[in-house]
Amino acid sequence: MDTYDFTKEKLIALGFETNEVEDLAKTISESQVLNEEVFKQFNAIADKLPWPQDHDFGALALQKWAASATKPVARMMIEKAIQRAGYCAQCSTSGGEGLARSEHVRELECEYRQRN
């Protein structure tokens, strides 16, 4: 099971819904234009979810659906995922937790560079 599915299952087990975040990430990936209002809506919904296993589900959803987006939209999605994952890492309360959360930021930055 990958990190996306694992995190989704953890959130559902904790009583949270993930459908709205997933649907918005998919909608963003299918758009041909970059719409900051949709990202604001996405963030407002994704911000309500906790970070099980040191991952932000919003960042994971953007990363997952960026794979099917056009290049400019995918790059924006990965940029937004980096911002979300970076905030998650900054909110860590211990060194080990910060390192664990920073791993996703590094993964996203690598993916962003590969999309150039």
Score class of each variant (00 low, 15 high):
residue 59 A to M: 01
residue 62 L to K: 02
residue 34 L to M: 10
residue 46 A to L: 08
residue 12 I to M: 05
residue 10 K to D: 06
residue 13 A to H: 15
residue 86 G to M: 07
residue 94 S to K: 05
residue 25 A to V: 06
residue 46 A to G: 15
residue 4 Y to E: 02
residue 114 Q to L: 05
residue 26 K to N: 09
residue 12 I to S: 09
residue 9 E to T: 14
residue 89 A to G: 00
residue 10 K to R: 13
residue 71 K to Y: 00
residue 92 S to F: 05
residue 83 Q to N: 11
residue 87 Y to E: 09
residue 71 K to I: 03
residue 53 Q to N: 15
residue 7 T to W: 05
residue 73 V to S: 10
residue 3 T to F: 03
residue 88 C to Y: 00
residue 86 G to I: 00
residue 39 F to Q: 03
residue 63 Q to R: 11
residue 62 L to H: 06
residue 1 M to C: 12
residue 8 K to F: 00
residue 30 E to Q: 15
residue 30 E to L: 13
residue 55 H to I: 00
residue 100 A to S: 10
residue 9 E to A: 12
residue 97 E to Y: 10
residue 73 V to Y: 06
residue 9 E to K: 08
residue 102 S to C: 08
residue 37 E to A: 15
residue 109 E to A: 10
residue 69 A to F: 06
residue 42 F to V: 11
residue 26 K to W: 09
residue 84 R to E: 11
residue 69 A to P: 11
residue 80 K to D: 00
residue 108 L to C: 01
residue 3 T to S: 06
residue 97 E to G: 09
residue 110 C to P: 01
residue 85 A to E: 02
residue 59 A to P: 03
residue 81 A to W: 01
residue 48 K to Q: 12
residue 101 R to N: 10
residue 63 Q to T: 10
residue 7 T to G: 03
residue 58 G to C: 03
residue 110 C to K: 04
residue 89 A to R: 00
residue 6 F to N: 06
residue 61 A to R: 08
residue 113 R to K: 14
residue 47 D to R: 05
residue 45 I to M: 04
residue 75 R to H: 05
